[in-house]
Design a protein around this nucleic acid. Structure first.
Lengths: 344, 344
DNA sequence: CTGAAAGCGCTTACAG
DNA sequence: CTGAAAGCGCTTACAG
């Protein structure tokens, strides 16, 4: 038809050899196809008042025939568009990430934000991903790790919210504080008669994690002599391997506090394969409060993170950052909570 | 000049009645602050050639002082912008969703797409969420359920890719086919001497799921008389409750095939609490191939979905749909694969 | 109920 | 190395 060849030709109607990728129809294409002006098209497409039923029908028909979709850029330029949050995680396959993402996505939706999800765990792609993300969102939040260093020089004024980062960071952030929950757990372990507790940390021997240190201290303060053990990585498999060795000793531990729930699952698995009953022979606890901890048998005692609370703080910070209204504090803290289940 | 210097409170702290939400600085604000033209600002900000070091420094300084961030709309309008995929899941807390999302996010990133994640499981918010999503992405993919009905009339030409939808759907989609894996599992169960298998389905009695029907048929074809049982919902808890009843019988089953891995976890839990050993006393299998299945003890035998393959197909379809090049087929099928582990 | 004008913020040629 | 002009696709007043 004349209309469609004009559409594709864009000023060059008779251009021979239809292009492989046809240009997308614009509001002007629809307008001319329907024989109306562009703002009549706007009215029809956006379901606005001030348009006759018949005209609307005709316009929508033309729009449909041309597979017209309003450009989000054209529209966003004039309306401002929705706010966009970029959520960066280090490994979507670790169940921790999805549980956080779920909370953030829900909370964001309630506040009218969209969230773009990025996994920078991929080898080498992190730099490219962050670059493309920072061009598309209003605020970036997540576990940036080393990428937070030198942020301004690389990504200019893109606001950044760090999750569980170093306390000395200059960026906005939401931190996690396990100390109170660790005290509660230590109390509990003592109350049930624990004698030989082991703290199973993930990091390298020379960089014991904060929670590992805190747990050691809490147990020592209660008169126990906990042993500190390191897995070479924080995976269930490594935790399982280390546990298998430990429980084979002449005097095995009667409690293992794992760096996180995933590692605690590995501990549980090693205990089962060794024929040990949890919690009768040995008690096990993790950190994070992942949903799966309630699905395994025995159910896992844990220091749970309130992901919803983290998400709430994150969105509050995101709003301040977007609007440039720093408010009072750009750093928040969320405490872990002891959740006692079967394993301890 | 007067306007722009007032606008940025930065150089004009004492502006009376400073507005709650300050207008964001534009490229023109930076240009005038740095005393250059707008395209010189573009050159500096986008790290382009053809600008002196000194000018660039001055511009970036001004940009920084004004917290300037290029508008993604202004930029997208002229560059076209990245492609955006909208991923819709029904419940991010069900581990199935994140595993799918992880694969899609990774695959999309490799193809240069961004993905916006939306959870429509939220009560009542689905309609609003889909509306805002469809204005922001190029293609929508996911588990739409009832929302796929009447899509065109509500969301016009927004391309849609349905995951695991009815075969009679007119939309593009990626379907799952468990039939071959079900045969493999049936073979295995027979080979290890299963006598009294139970198929634990999730749906209501009058709407047995496709995989439930297929498993029943596969077992019957091998001379067994499987029993079909329904949980009132597909949660681990319901599965656990039903299992507890069944295994209490005089002649309990020696194998349970659960609708999905989550329910299989519930089965495992009920067995453990009843003192049954899996797989010695009873065999258990699920469907989905979730990561957690490999972390529990005993590890879970399952009919695994290759999420990466689903993601690959999804992105191929997304590209065709975005470009309006339908290619040969807009429907793909991915087969489950039997993964034998300890539980069966 | 409909349309002509202006402008959102940016980049891409093009001219100096 | 720098800037004046044009235009991306849309909506928001405003005028008929």
């Amino acid at each position: 038809m004349a209309g469609s060849s004009q559409l594709n030709g864009a000023g060059d109607p008779g251009s021979p050899g239809s292009p492989a990728t046809r240009r997308r129809a614009t509001i002007l294409d629809v307008a001319s196809a329907a024989g109306v002006s562009r703002q009549t098209v706007t009215r029809a497409v956006n379901d606005m008042a001030g348009i006759s039923v018949e005209t609307k029908r005709r316009v929508l028909e033309a729009a449909n025939a041309l597979s017209y979709r309003p450009s989000r850029f054209g529209r966003g330029l004039v309306t401002g568009g929705d706010s966009q949050l970029g959520l960066v995680v280090s490994d979507l396959r670790n169940p921790y990430s999805p549980e956080l993402a779920a909370a953030v996505v829900r909370c964001a939706a309630a506040e009218g934000w969209s969230v773009s999800l990025v996994d920078i765990g991929l080898a080498g792609a992190a730099d490219r991903l962050l670059h493309s993300l920072h061009a598309q969102v209003d605020v970036i939040v997540g576990y940036l790790g080393e990428w937070a260093r030198g942020w301004e020089s690389r990504f200019g004024a893109t606001p950044l919210i760090l999750l569980d980062a170093d306390a000395d960071s200059r960026h906005a952030g939401v931190n996690l504080d396990p100390s109170a929950a660790i005290e509660d757990l230590a109390d509990h372990l003592v109350a049930v008669g624990t004698r030989r507790p082991v703290v199973l940390d993930a990091s390298e021997p020379h960089a014991t994690s904060g929670r590992g240190i805190a747990m050691m201290a809490a147990l020592e303060r209660r008169g126990l002599s906990p042993e500190l053990v390191h897995a070479s990585a924080s995976t269930p498999e490594h935790a399982s391997a280390v546990t298998a060795q430990i429980i084979r000793r002449a005097t095995p531990p009667d409690a293992i506090f794992a760096f996180n729930d995933l590692m605690a699952l590995g501990v549980l698995s090693a205990c089962r394969h060794a024929g040990l009953d949890v919690p009768r022979d040995i008690r096990v606890a993790g950190v994070d409060g992942l949903t799966i901890g309630a699905l395994v048998a025995p159910t896992l005692t844990t220091l749970a993170v309130d992901f919803d609370e983290v998400a709430r703080h994150t969105l509050e910070l995101a709003v301040s950052l977007r609007d440039g209204t720093p408010g009072l504090g750009l750093r928040r803290t969320v405490s872990h909570r002891l959740v006692l289940r079967e394993s301890a």
